[in-house]
Design a binder for these strands. Structure first.
Length: 308
DNA sequence: AAAAAATTCAACCGCGAATTG
DNA sequence: GCAATTCGCGGTTGAATTTTT
């Protein structure tokens, strides 16, 4: 037969597509449609293999492609579909108009990575020790326990502002499930003069918040547990403070969107969101996490109650 | 300010399935 | 029916970019 099908000829270009190449491919496909990808490069005047053209068209150039951030609805769909069918990306993508298997796969892989991320050694980094006196911060407790709207007082999907915006929560993955006595456990929040501290009794250490994370597991024995009691109450998302995770920067978490199953925190500035829920069986919080980066920590901390 | 580390994600690879001739 | 070719999928890579130190 005439030419070879794929990418070993020395003329064949690889790597990122240039705008000119895109142009050629788009022009060819819009004029001729596609049937046999292996003859596309030749006819379109491209130094690519047919496979590469196909991929470029399907994942990037075709007109009905959807780009940009996944919507919360899409995220939920991906999560539930993945739960049902596993890594069948093409199948999952077929339920999300305009999205490609590749994109969903990429999304999932970074999602997973985040979940499996090793417990950070945030505590170890701290050189602060606990040689000082402190008082339990009752003001803080009171703030956390204040009345908030209950489920029945809200319409579904109502958006409302929290009394104090810009909370940070970090559920789960920073603490190993088994290690309730882990070094990451936070037992108390308190302040010393104007400094806020998180105390880990196990190690007898206290750190400023930016060095520490709470987790749902650490909630078992810490004073914030009662806040998470049931789904009839809108819960204050004091789950954690964690810096250094990376890519989930948030500028502000200032709204709570409610639906039947999920409490969803919406970062209105970044148009991202995250979820948490109370897992009755596990007796702990589950869900996604949001981790601010150190670059916006100042902002986030400054929105804490002034008493802290 | 600069270097290092982490992340992203478009593109690649090989494989099994489907199609072609 | 068969072998060659093409298609479609999912795992993986690595350069560009972002974030952290």
């Amino acid at each position: 037969m005439g030419h070879h099908s794929c990418c070993n000829q020395q003329k064949v270009k690889r790597g990122l597509w240039s705008p000119e190449e895109d142009e050629k491919l788009i022009r060819y496909i819009t004029n001729h449609g596609y049937g046999c990808w292996s003859e596309v490069p030749e006819k379109a005047g491209l130094q690519r293999c047919g496979k590469s053209c196909r991929l470029r068209w399907i994942n990037y150039l075709r007109p009905d492609i959807r780009r940009g951030r996944f919507t919360p609805e899409e995220e939920k769909l991906i999560i539930s579909l993945h739960g049902a069918v596993g890594n069948r990306w093409a199948h999952i993508a077929s339920h999300l108009p305009g999205r490609t298997d590749n994109e969903i796969k990429n999304y999932w892989n970074s999602w997973i990575k985040k979940k499996i991320r090793k417990p950070t050694n945030t505590i170890a980094k701290s050189n602060q020790t606990s040689q000082f006196t402190y008082t339990q911060n009752h003001q803080f407790d009171h703030f956390l326990n204040q009345d908030l709207p209950t489920k029945s007082q809200l319409q579904d999907n109502t958006l409302f502002s929290l009394p104090n915006p810009s909370f940070i929560f970090d559920i789960g993955s920073n603490v190993q499930p088994t290690s309730t006595t882990s070094h990451s456990r936070i037992d108390q929040i308190f302040q010393d003069n104007s400094q806020t501290w998180l105390l880990n009794q196990h190690q007898g250490q206290a750190q400023p918040p930016e060095m520490v994370s709470y987790s749902s597991h650490s909630m078992n024995s810490n004073p914030l547990t009662p806040l998470m009691d049931n789904l009839d109450n809108i819960m204050v998302p004091i789950e954690g403070i964690n810096v250094g995770g990376g890519h989930d920067q948030i500028s502000a978490v200032d709204c709570l969107q409610r639906n039947d199953q999920i409490n969803e925190w919406v970062d209105t500035q970044n148009c991202s969101s995250s979820y948490f829920f109370w897992d009755q069986e596990e007796g702990q919080l589950g869900g996604d996490e949001i981790i601010p980066s150190s670059s916006n920590m100042g902002t986030l901390m400054s929105s804490f109650p002034s008493s802290l």
